[in-house]
C-alpha cells in the first residue's frame, strides 16, 4: 500500500538518509529500530512531508509522488490519509482533549461538528480517557496526553498511522498504558509504522522489523528473523547493546 523508494535527505552537509526503501502492506505493523542518528525519525517525517526529502519516490495507494516535486495539494491529500503521533505529543495546548481530536475532522475533513464530537468521544473512550473530554493538555499526565494524541490519530480513520518514538518522553510507569493502546490497535489490523526503542512492542505485535543505521536499511525481516537470527554484524552489535542477556528465542 505504501512504498518508499530510494529516499535521500540531507540537512546542510549531513546526509541523514542515504537511499532508503520501505514497503508497507495494509495491516502491517512495521517497527523501525536503530541507534540515534540512523535517520529513522527523518524517514518517518518524510513520509508525511514534515521534512521535505531531497530525492525519492513515494507510492501511496496506487498514486506515485516524487518527494522533491510534490505539490501542496498532493501533500495535503497525503496528510488527510495519514496520521502522526509525536514523541512530545504536540497536543494543541489551547484546546481541550475533545477539541484536539475533533480539530482534524472539522477543519481539515469538513465533518459536521456533531458527528466529529461523536467520533472523538468514541476514540477517547477507546484509549481510556472517557472522563477527560474537557481537560486541557496542561491538566493531563504525559501518558494521558500521548493517548489523546493517539485518539487524535485514529479519529481521522487514516490508512496508516506514523508513530515517532511515542513512549520516549514518558516516565517508565506511564509507558505501559500507551503501549497497550498501540497493541490493541495493531491487533485490530491498523496499519502502523512505528519508530521505537520498546523491544516488547516489536516482539509482540510487529509484522516486520526494520533495522536502520547510518542512513540506510541494514536488515529487515520478521521479528523472529531479526531478533533470533540476525544476519548482519551491525544488527547483532545493536541488539547486544539494547537487550540484556542476549540469548534470544521467541
Amino acid at each position: 500500500m505504501i512504498e518508499v523508494k530510494n529516499v535521500h535527505k540531507s540537512f546542510g552537509k549531513n546526509e541523514i538518509l542515504k537511499g532508503v526503501d520501505l514497503k508497507v502492506e495494509k495491516g502491517d505493523v512495521v517497527v523501525i529500530l536503530g541507534p540515534s542518528g540512523s535517520g529513522k525519525t527523518t524517514l518517518l517525517r518524510c513520509i508525511n512531508f514534515l521534512e521535505k526529502a531531497d530525492q525519492g519516490e513515494l507510492l501511496f495507494k496506487g498514486e506515485s509522488y516524487h518527494f522533491q516535486h510534490a505539490s501542496k495539494k498532493d501533500i495535503l491529500n497525503i496528510r488527510k490519509k495519514t496520521a502522526f503521533v509525536f514523541q512530545n505529543y504536540n497536543l494543541f495546548s489551547n484546546k481541550t482533549a475533545l477539541e484536539n481530536v475533533t480539530e482534524g475532522l472539522i477543519i481539515a475533513r469538513k465533518v459536521s461538528k456533531d458527528k466529529a464530537v461523536e467520533i472523538a468521544k468514541e476514540c477517547l473512550n477507546k484509549v481510556g480517557l472517557a472522563d477527560k473530554y474537557d481537560s486541557y493538555p496542561s491538566q493531563l499526565s504525559g501518558g494521558q496526553q500521548q493517548r489523546v494524541g493517539i485518539a487524535r490519530a485514529i479519529a481521522v480513520n487514516p490508512d496508516v498511522i506514523l508513530f515517532d518514538e511515542p513512549t520516549s518522553a514518558l516516565d517508565p510507569e506511564l509507558i505501559g498504558e500507551v503501549l497497550s493502546v498501540m497493541k490493541l490497535l495493531a491487533k485490530e489490523g491498523t496499519t502502523m509504522i512505528v519508530v521505537t526503542h520498546e523491544m516488547s512492542f516489536a516482539e509482540d505485535v510487529a509484522s516486520k522489523v526494520v533495522f536502520m543505521d547510518g542512513g540506510v536499511v541494514v536488515e529487515e525481516g520478521t521479528p523472529k528473523e531479526i531478533f533470533c537470527n540476525p544476519k548482519m554484524d551491525r544488527t547483532k552489535q545493536f541488539l547486544r547493546r539494547i537487550i540484556r542477556n542476549y540469548d534470544y528465542s521467541i
Binding site: N48, R79, F84, N90, F92, E103, I107, A108, R152
Partner: peptide
C-alpha cells in the same frame, strides 16, 4: 510557540494558514 504545534496541525491535515 513551539514548532511542534504547527507540525501537529499540519499532520492532522490542516493547511498552514489554518
Amino acid at each position: 510557540v513551539e514548532k511542534g504545534q504547527l507540525e501537529a496541525a499540519q499532520a492532522a491535515g490542516l493547511t498552514t494558514f489554518q
